[in-house]
Simulated scan of single mutants.
Amino acid sequence: MLAGVLADAADKITSARFRAQDLRVSRKPDRTPVTDADTAVEDAIRELLATERPGDTVAGEERGGSVAAPGRVWVLDPIDGTKNFLRGAPVWATLIALVEDGTPVVGMVSAPLLGRRWWASAGGGAWLRDDAGERRISVSAVGELGDAFLSTTDLGSWTEYHSREAYLALVDACWESRAFGDFWHHCLVAEGALDVAVEPIVNPWDVAAAQVLVTEAGGRFSDLTGAGRFDGGSALSSNGLVHDAALRLVRR
């Protein structure tokens, strides 16, 4: 799979630059951090795609491009979890998705310092490779919010972008909550380790890969209006069984 080749190239760069003493950090206009590793990964993937798929379009977090372009678009987040990366926490990943006419059909999430890689393709199921080997994964069978394990991102983002009260209502309705954040909680939903992951604000490159991964694992992915799209500005992934109940609470 080409997405695997791209992820291998990314892992080589990110692993070498993680905790590097000469890591260079700057800030984008929205004040989020970007490292020289972010740009190096995206440049390397773009170079490979220019050779392997010269007719495809590329949209990346660092170098731009439109995820709404017609045809085949590779959507890239070179390092999802940059704040973790620059602080020396190992929870970060490269996200690669192939979107065809607006629909994600391939998703690749590679987290080398966690020793884990998740991938999925339309009709091909969702897969995980870790130190136990390679295996197909599926979402949980939890059917009630009261039994559900929930994760989100930074709690302050709910106040700024949606509704803190709505999220806390969801917390109160669930069995347990954490804030794994970023790519990881969507991957854990696909594995069946979590039942719900929800974010009030996302960019398309944050969740394009997650959409195909979760849905191929048997779950459901939507924005907070319930639309099954990765470019709606928010994200809710679940095992599918508790999705509507969760939506009713966070829509408030």
Results as ranks from 00 to 15, higher is better:
233 G>M: 10
98 L>F: 05
140 S>R: 11
76 L>N: 09
94 T>A: 12
76 L>W: 04
3 A>I: 09
173 A>F: 03
125 G>Y: 00
183 F>P: 03
150 L>M: 10
1 M>T: 13
45 I>W: 01
187 C>F: 01
50 A>M: 05
114 L>Y: 01
5 V>Y: 08
87 R>Q: 14
196 V>E: 05
147 D>Q: 13
125 G>S: 03
143 G>L: 06
211 Q>Y: 08
249 L>W: 10
27 R>H: 15
187 C>E: 12
160 E>C: 03
127 W>I: 04
7 A>W: 09
150 L>G: 07
248 R>I: 07
111 A>G: 07
62 E>V: 02
171 V>Y: 00
163 S>W: 09
55 G>S: 14
28 K>I: 04
181 G>H: 08
53 R>Y: 10
167 Y>Q: 07
20 A>T: 02
6 L>E: 06
238 S>Q: 09
123 G>F: 06
190 A>V: 00
178 R>T: 15
206 D>T: 07
38 D>R: 04
229 R>K: 12
1 M>K: 13
70 P>T: 11
98 L>I: 04
17 R>A: 15
119 W>F: 14
242 V>E: 01
243 H>M: 01
146 G>C: 05
72 R>Y: 00
231 D>Q: 08
240 G>E: 11
229 R>D: 05
176 E>C: 06
143 G>V: 06
25 V>E: 04
167 Y>P: 01
42 E>I: 06
59 A>D: 03
126 A>R: 00
36 D>C: 12
206 D>P: 01
33 P>Q: 09
84 N>M: 07
29 P>A: 15
109 V>Q: 06
4 G>R: 14
114 L>W: 06
228 G>W: 02
42 E>S: 05
222 S>V: 14
177 S>E: 14
209 A>C: 09
74 W>L: 07
192 G>R: 12
86 L>K: 13
109 V>L: 13
